[in-house]
Write a protein that binds this DNA or RNA. Structure first.
Lengths: 213, 213
DNA sequence: TAGATTGTTAATCGATTAACAATC
DNA sequence: TAGATTGTTAATCGATTAACAATC
């Protein structure tokens, strides 16, 4: 029954939410949960939850439900959270500093191994104990450390050239916070965008148009 | 032809992207664009773009296309970006500080009027010229200033009580950065979630499962 | 065994794409 | 006028929901 190919993005984006909630249940000491209970707590339908989980295998037991601990671990495995992919962060401005701190205390599949900035006012300073390197060191560093992923916290205009350098260095997965949609010509890359401005504008729309739910 | 009710979230979430790209075109001095050109640049179909825009009215001209300047303004209006909704920010940690700076130099529909934190190490400090107030002042401040929206950059466990206080003060729109899904019992609220952890886990999945596009 | 709840197939709903007539 | 491109309807595709047989 477990397929595991061509899982839709809609399903994938719900997995972290399941994981987050199951972790919470685990901490509260809940051992067993049914799809119906889950659906109520998460505001989804029980059907959808079972449908989602069965993309990856049958983790439940008929007549009983799901074992919280086990399901949580399974989803963690599916997400690949036990990996420690090496990540670097480019751009140690306000947002970069926040993300760097965020990631180091709560690593989910990644380990931050380097922070870079091109401004002399930032290089040499420390974020959570890690030194901020000059971006000119990028080539040397990447050849040595071979990071898997780069967090991009730089202004729009800098993105293009940095991406090119990173791609050539073999760093081909990006967590992009810049106000810019990275359109990759290559298909061996993964880009996960976090467009805070877009989110804020969406909120503005929803406040301005209360007719919609 | 302009309807303007029950616009689907899928459409709404594409609007900021259109807006962002059109602003960029405007800056580059492009005056005219067709749905086909747009579709190529944005990686969508021309059909979808025309379909999306026609939820709000016919902004184009047959045989000609869209006037960049005009379309950009129209979308800005639809989003409500000329509003200056008063916003407050709760939680002046790393992320809170980053968002506060972010919002003040690039305001899209909002104006940050207050920053709050409950830790004595933070209160009294300044972020982008604005003082960080003690959260105990929340009631007085909100009664006086009547903010429309609250940015939540506090840890999970604090959210519940803060939301309750805010709701009772009439602050019912939230931009939520906490690792927590705000489930509102009331329907006069709007919650826009930014779950950075979820985004990171999704990225981890996509790196770990390269079979998928 | 009887009751409960899953896994899975079938039905519905909504969103995207295609097609084309209207019109600038 | 002829060419181009929109606005809009119709067709397709995918995702969500409902239903139920399998089974713990």
């Amino acid at each position: 029954m477990p397929r595991r190919e061509n899982i839709s993005m809609s399903v994938i984006r719900r997995l972290p939410r399941y994981y987050r909630f199951l972790t919470h249940l685990k901490q509260k000491g809940v051992t067993r949960i049914s799809s119906t209970e889950l659906s109520v707590k998460l505001g989804l339908t029980a059907s959808q939850i079972r449908q989602d989980l069965n993309c990856f295998g049958g983790f439940g037991q008929q007549g009983y439900g799901y074992i919280v601990d086990q399901l949580c671990d399974e989803i963690g495995n599916i997400l690949g959270l036990s990996n420690e992919y090496k990540a670097i962060l480019i751009g140690a401005g306000n947002l970069g500093r926040a993300i760097a701190s965020h990631m180091s205390f709560d690593d989910e599949g990644f380990r931050l191994v380097g922070i870079f900035d091109s401004s002399p006012s930032k290089t040499g300073t420390r974020i959570n104990g890690q030194i901020v390197r000059d971006t000119v060191e990028l080539e040397d560093f990447c050849q040595k450390e071979q990071p898997t992923m780069a967090v991009l916290c730089i202004p729009r205009d800098g993105v293009h050239t940095v991406i090119e350098r990173l791609y050539n260095l073999g760093v081909r997965n990006y967590w992009n916070f810049s106000h810019y949609d990275i359109a990759m010509k290559y298909d061996d890359t993964v880009v996960e965008n976090v467009h805070l401005n877009d989110s804020l504008m969406t909120l503005c729309y929803r406040i301005s148009n209360p007719s919609q739910k």
